[in-house]
Amino acid sequence: MKILTLTLVCVATAAFAKPAKPAEDFLSFPVPNGPFLLPAMTGTFEDATVADLIESYSEATGQYCIMDEETRSYAHSYKISSAKSKELSIPPDQLQVTFEHILASHGFVLDLLSTAEPRLIGIQSLNSSRRARVKAGAKFITESQIEEAAKHPAMYFNTVIHLPGVNTRQVTNALRAMFPDPMAASILPAGELPSVVLTASGPHLRELQALLREIRAEKQRADEAAASAQDKLPSDAGGTDEEGD
């Protein structure tokens, strides 16, 4: 009997102590070994708040989540869902994106403060007095990383999109309406350079990138059409001259 007990203890040690898959950069997050269940401690899912979710996520992934007092009180006051189901079960590989979707839908932003162990995650409410610091924590990504960043709806990024030949001041003025909260997201022209600087959440950046690519393609088509029309002009003009002579 003692040996069986010892065996169970040892098996449990091996099962629970196994670390989650290590993450390498600010776009990679640990993946837990099993399905993520919420709530673990609050009884039923309909009672679970964003604070419960954050606590369970922190335990499941081995990361430390930190919040200022104002953000914490918001996290305790928002219920995740009014659904009557007993629990929320999330597959391990979907945990990060689901967690961030729930955070973002309740107005919380995630800022990865440390990629090395111990991994630290700052969580900030967009309703709090420190909301302006959201842009301070935005990480730079290249245009090619936007697709990966789109899987992080609660994270904010800076990126630069090149728009050769496009009047970037006009474009940024026209698109400013797509940034209803300038404290959290923005679009800026890079001076006289044919580039714009975007600060926004991952999915928002992807939408903006698609739009700007369309503008870039439209400009290219217009330039090609103008060049083609220009090519025709000299021969027409030449013919007229000959006729005149």
């Binding site: 040996i3 010892l6 065996t7 040892c10 098996v11 040690t13 091996a14 099962a15 102590a17 196994k18």
Partner: peptide, 15 residues
């Protein structure tokens, strides 16, 4: 069982 227990314990501790 004891051998398996020791093995899993070592694996657990190492992780």
């Amino acid at each position: 069982i004891a051998v398996v227990a020791c093995f899993t314990f070592v694996v657990g501790c190492e992780s």
